[in-house]
Amino acid sequence: MPLKDFLEASKGAIKEVTIGKEGKSATIGGEAVLPFHNFEGNLPRLPVMALEVWDTTPPETWPDHLRSHFGDVVNSPVLWAKKCLEVYKADLICLYLASAAEGEPDAPALAAKVKEIGDALPAPMIVYGTGEKDVDTLVLREVARACAGDGLLLGPVLKENHKEIAEAAQEYGHALIAQTPIDINLAKELNIKLSKFFPKERIVIDPLSSALGYGMDYSFSVMERIKQVAVLFGDDMMKMPIIANLGRECWRAREAKENDQQGILWEAITAMTMFLAGANLAVVGSPDSMKLVKKLLGQFSTGQIEV
């Protein structure tokens, strides 16, 4: 039958990025196909999911149905993170440095705290700064130094502060999240700048995720375009895996806050849609929505499937 003649050969494979160190690591990327297209090429692994942990208590705006999963442990990032890993079975956690956004951060003290949290955990860690360029430069450089050799995934680095943070990440062996606002050209530009002195195998693209109903369409299309350019056209500067940091966006949405089940679905559908668009790693807030997506992904196969 002629159907097989229509399968499309890909020109490029997404790079593999490993987060963590020996004994506790997670690898993302590596696919030589568009998202889940393993009917026409190899998909070595499924996307992974991180639960978000705040280094402060979560904000007032969190609805009870989200807060209640964590109970008391929200007062201790270590316990919170452990619960995410041990009870909720997240692949890894994403530590959000919310405290740095409140006034002048004490960078060395914050970095020591990050080190302590990371050491207490059996899984690798993403460390996510505030998105404010000067604060992050200060804090993330310290974190990179304090956690030397731990192989964190650190970010976001922006056009404005990529140099300072990437130098530290390079020196101390971390991977980086390169963030640009929903624009494929800006994403590529930042990757080019970084790869002049930073290994491409340690870059993860963050093209910005937005929540279902709140601009998700833009994130969806920019991710699809990046994957298309990387896999179908073989553009070396776009072959880095993609992170979708969507939990915080979703839990700001009115629809997620107003109803428990709707909240779970809001986040789960956003995550699954980002995966369909090409995200290799998603950061979410609710263990329930993570479980839901993981269960669905659990039915997806890796390798190559026959058509």
């Binding site: 279902l212 109903g213 998700m216 833009y218 969806f220 089940q261 709707q262 679905l265 849609t273």
Partner: peptide
């Protein structure tokens, strides 16, 4: 027939089918 389920899907459809 749960409105929470259907609203989520209708919103997704709106996102995907919006003219970019």
């Amino acid at each position: 027939v749960d409105p929470a389920d259907v609203l989520s899907l209708i919103t997704l459809r709106l996102n995907i089918y919006t003219d970019p």
